[in-house]
Design a binder for these strands. Structure first.
Lengths: 232, 232
DNA sequence: AGAATAGTGTCTGTAAGACATTATACA
DNA sequence: TGTATAATGTCTTACAGACACTATTCT
């Protein structure tokens, strides 16, 4: 009954990295290396192995992999549900520790990154097939973000730089897939106490809008009531 | 960049197994084997390694370990957040895939199991020190159950046999640590559509109470509003 | 009969939902 | 001056919260 008695499954992290771009929710994919034992040269979620020498924890593993493969550090990260079984990797038993990562639209990243619309992966027959259980991981990450948009301020972290409330509302509308009442949205954000005015403002379209920043980094507010009503 | 290029951390499952007993929320601990390389003969959460030959997935790993070490199968299981770092195990890098498990009060289990009050582990200085990060895992599991008791019917699964609504309310009160209004609680449970009458009833204390069972096994209902009010 | 528990009726308060209005910038 | 957007005011409604009440069973 000592530790080395059993072979341990292969264990990796995977990053489901989302951004808002062109009025779409997009996910980052990268092409697997040509010398990979399975799924060589195929588009997949960025991920990788723990470096037991350099990583102190799985967070380090995630950030290192994103830096190496996508060349950016996310504005927000959160753990998703682990997944481990004999069939997700053709090479045998494996476990993944997947993360949801949010990044702001203007963040620059490696040109290797292929951004695809998340909606391409929500149906039964996606436009491209992803290796492993990566489509399921994207679906789970979206499911989480979608629901959190209804009862938390997690989508706030699609912004790193100051933002206007209208921009923020647009993000929520894209995630939820339906328009929201402006006043209700603003009341809700105010009630959450999740943002504060910078004092600055910017001219957007034909009006002047106040700029806001996060009050708490990486700590969404949770509402006591789920957002029900939305237009249509 | 092939798979076997890096050593993989040790990966285990841990079970935070809760029951309601003696008006308390209790957690199951077992004594580690005397030949363990670390923390031999110490009380800890039941857990163990993946058997890549016999387990199809981590669920199998959990159930097999619970059967072997606690001699029972839980009424409800759910994944908790994975944890992986260099310091949680004195032997080095390790990852745990922890599960929350609920079992009914009357379930019989191995006599080896030591049931302890969860409240013993919620403060800074617990009555006994647990190895690894097991105290944190218990705290996280309780935190989840506590909050889910406020916005879901997850605590329903402390029952496997038919139960009365008063018994159910008592379970919620123990988890939440405060009394609830009877009528409000019953309205909420009815609204959730999570239980149905068996048609049977039983005499409890000085009155006759209807018996209920789950409508959906393993699928809690989620309310659109968080339970705020409770007595005191 | 009295006590304890199961089960129900109903009023209130609060925050989400719906919609209207005002203010501001620009062409 | 007209139009599009920012920002706010206010009425309605749904449901949690509080509490009173009735029904049933046992001592």
């Amino acid at each position: 009954m000592t530790k080395q008695a059993y072979p341990t499954p292969v264990c990796t992290i995977d990053a489901v990295l989302f951004r808002i771009h062109d009025e779409q929710l997009q996910v980052a994919l990268i092409r697997r290396p040509s010398d990979a034992r399975v799924y060589a040269n195929v588009l997949a979620l960025p991920g990788g192995f723990v470096h037991v020498d350099s990583d102190q924890n799985l967070n380090d593993t995630l950030l290192r992999n994103l830096k190496e493969k996508v060349a950016l550090s996310p504005a927000y990260i959160a753990k998703l549900e682990f997944e481990g079984n004999i069939s997700r990797d053709p090479e045998g038993w494996s476990i993944t520790c997947p993360y949801l990562c949010l990044i702001d639209e203007s963040a620059s990243c490696s040109e290797q990154v292929c951004w695809m619309s998340v909606s391409d992966f929500l149906g039964e027959s996606p436009s491209i097939n992803l290796p492993f259980d990566h489509q399921q991981l994207i679906q789970k990450a979206f499911h989480r973000l979608y629901h959190r948009a209804k009862y938390s301020t997690e989508p706030n972290y699609f912004f790193r730089e100051p933002f206007t409330l209208s921009e923020l509302q647009t993000v929520y509308e894209i995630v939820l897939g339906k328009p929201l009442h402006k006043k209700n949205f603003r009341d809700r954000i105010e009630e959450s106490d999740s943002v504060e005015e910078t004092g600055e403002s910017k001219i957007v379209k034909r009006s002047r809008a106040k700029l806001y920043t996060h009050k708490q980094p990486q700590k969404p507010h949770f509402f006591s009531r789920v957002l029900q009503g939305a237009l249509d």
